[in-house]
Amino acid sequence: MTSLLSFYQDIGPTMTLLVVLTFVLAGAVKGVIGLGLPTVAMGLLGLAMSPTQAAALLIVPSTLTNLWQLASGGHLRALLHRLWPMLVAIFFATLLGSAWLGIDSGPWAAHALGGALLVYALYGLIGPELRLNPVRETWLGPLCGLLTGLVTAATGVFVIPAVPYLQSLRLSRDEMVQALGLSFTVSTLALALGLASQDVLGAQALGASLLVLVPALLGMLGGQWLRQRISAALFKRCFFIGLGVLGAHLLVNG
């Protein structure tokens, strides 16, 4: 129990409250639009701690909520058959990128995180609706996976360019939700291995990450309740605007 709480004892009550509220909000965003938990968590926590610490905290809630998302839909076998080149590239690029780049606390790390958030927000707000010719999937999928893995290794954010690529495949709603869960699960597991190879993901970090699973799940359940009562399109627009402002702040100020 001591190892579970030691991280929060070290950072103090104010930072602990920030972590809890961040994961409630991040879970709520995921509950409404089906993605965004690690993106929101990395962005907000990046204001107050190193990207390495933030990435270690999101491992358990991100993995379990993505597995929950992955388990529903009934299209897993077909999606694995179609997406395996991208998924393999994500996995190994994240591992190699962690060894090469690493999510450290250097002066460039927060700026890189801000840049990734800003690019994702701009794409969500004004990006064109893409439609990919299936013939191009054979080479574009692995390339997308390679780039996603490198961005994940450098920033802890694994939505660019994986999400635009998956959206361009014109999957059904259920297929898209499951494909996102599949991609994010692979990214999170590879990120966890990368952090472990840097001696960042020890017992203390895993314990701290396990404890934020509760606020993340509560936020996700609240977001699913909220989804039935608000316009998902309006919420999504507000989400990307807020994410863009946050990304711009981190990009400029670090």
Score class of each variant (00 low, 15 high):
Ala71Lys: 13
Leu117Ile: 01
Tyr123Gly: 06
Leu226Ser: 04
Ser231His: 12
Ser105Arg: 14
Gly43Lys: 01
Val60Tyr: 00
Leu87Gly: 08
Lys236Glu: 15
Cys144Glu: 07
Val252Leu: 15
Thr148Gln: 02
Val186Arg: 00
Thr155Phe: 04
Ala56Val: 14
Trp84Val: 06
Val177Lys: 11
Ala116Val: 14
Ile90Arg: 08
Glu175Ala: 15
Leu64Asn: 07
Gly34Val: 14
Val19Arg: 04
Val119Glu: 02
Asp10Leu: 12
Trp225Val: 15
Ala154Ser: 15
Tyr123Thr: 07
Gly74Arg: 07
Val88Pro: 06
His81Gln: 14
Arg229Ala: 11
Leu218Lys: 01
Ala162Lys: 11
Leu45Ala: 12
Phe235His: 09
Leu218Asn: 08
Ser3Val: 07
Leu95Ile: 07
Leu80Gly: 06
Ile33Phe: 01
Ile126Ala: 06
His75Gly: 09
Ile103Asp: 13
Ala78Leu: 07
Phe158Tyr: 08
Ala28Val: 00
Val60Arg: 01
Trp108Val: 15
Leu57Gln: 04
Gly114Cys: 13
Leu226Met: 15
Ala99Pro: 09
Leu195Trp: 04
Ile241Ala: 14
Pro128Val: 08
Trp108Asn: 13
Asn66Met: 01
Tyr120Val: 07
Ala55Ile: 00
Gly36Ala: 02
Arg227Thr: 14
Ala112Glu: 08
Tyr165Pro: 04
Met86Leu: 11
Ser187Arg: 01
Trp100Asn: 09
Leu125Pro: 11
Gly156Ile: 14
Leu147Phe: 13
Ala248Asn: 05
Ala112Asn: 12
Pro164Thr: 05
Met49His: 04
Leu132Glu: 05
Leu25Ala: 14
Leu169Trp: 07
Ala89Trp: 04
Leu140Thr: 15
Leu147Pro: 08
Met15Val: 12
Ile160Cys: 10
Arg227Glu: 08
Thr52Gln: 13
Ser231Met: 12
Trp139Ala: 10
Leu101Asn: 09
Ser197Lys: 02
Leu211Met: 09
Leu101Pro: 08
Leu251Asp: 03
Gly181Gln: 02
Ile241Thr: 15
Gly106Pro: 09
Ser50Thr: 13
Leu226Asn: 06
Ser168Arg: 02
Met176Glu: 10
Leu246Gly: 10
Val32Pro: 00
Thr94Asn: 03
Met15Arg: 14
Met86Ser: 05
Phe92Gly: 06
Arg77Gly: 02
Leu147Gln: 12
Ile126Cys: 05
Phe158Val: 03
Leu211Ser: 07
Gly27Glu: 11
Ala28Leu: 06
Asn66Thr: 05
Leu57Ile: 09
Glu137Pro: 00
Asp199Val: 03
Gln69Lys: 00
Pro51Gln: 12
Leu44Cys: 02
Trp84Lys: 10
Thr39Phe: 00
Leu37Ala: 03
Ala109Pro: 01
Gly106Leu: 13
Leu193Lys: 03
Ile230Val: 15
Ala208Tyr: 03
Cys238Glu: 03
Leu47Arg: 02
Thr2Pro: 03
Leu166Ser: 10
Leu79Arg: 05
Ala203Ser: 10
Leu122Gln: 09
Ala190Gln: 00
Gly247Asp: 01
Val60Met: 03
Ala153Thr: 11
Glu129Leu: 13
His81Leu: 11
Ala154Phe: 10
Ala248Ile: 11
Leu64Gln: 00
Leu96Tyr: 05
Arg170Val: 13
Val24Met: 09
Leu140Val: 15
Thr148Ser: 08
Ser50Gly: 10
